[in-house]
């Protein structure tokens, strides 16, 4: 077992992996943003073309991808807040590991009901409504 360097934030261990995940989620969200501005720009073409493309956002598979997108954005937002606290709050670096656990907890607490409401219609369309 290789021991990790002590007193570094980004080299090895959870500090590094939160940074790696921050980059991956950031790049993913950026590419989606380019696509999203393009699809929204269809409102300047015609209502029909916009509605046609937005219909693909309502299909089960893309709906699932949207949950992934929201999860990526939420992680990037929460970890970004953690980075700001590490950089600007005097006690930030000392509590960075606790903050990692805090954002993981908040992420799960928000994503479970969030995914439920986002996928509710898809579940009902696929497996029938209970109401």
């Amino acid at each position: 077992m290789v021991s990790l360097p002590v007193g570094t934030l980004y080299r090895g261990g959870d500090g590094m992996w939160t940074w790696v995940l921050h980059r991956i989620t950031g790049v993913s969200v950026f590419f989606f943003l380019l696509v999203h501005v393009l699809d929204t720009a269809l409102v300047r073409v015609s209502p029909e073309s916009y509605d046609l493309v937005i219909a693909s956002y309502k299909t089960p598979i893309v709906n699932l991808l949207e949950v992934g997108l929201v999860g990526a954005v939420l992680y990037h937002a929460l970890n970004g807040l953690r980075i700001v606290l590490i950089d600007f709050w005097a006690k930030g670096p000392r509590y960075q590991r606790q903050m990692t656990w805090a954002i993981a907890t908040v992420w799960i607490v928000l994503m479970v009901p969030g995914a439920f409401f986002m996928l509710k219609h898809t579940f009902e369309a696929m497996f029938g409504s209970t109401s």
Partner: peptide, 16 residues
Amino acid sequence: NVLDGGVQRINFAFVA
């Protein structure tokens, strides 16, 4: 994505 039916209610009229 979450409020009031989420993505299912989005169309041109909603944007307008």
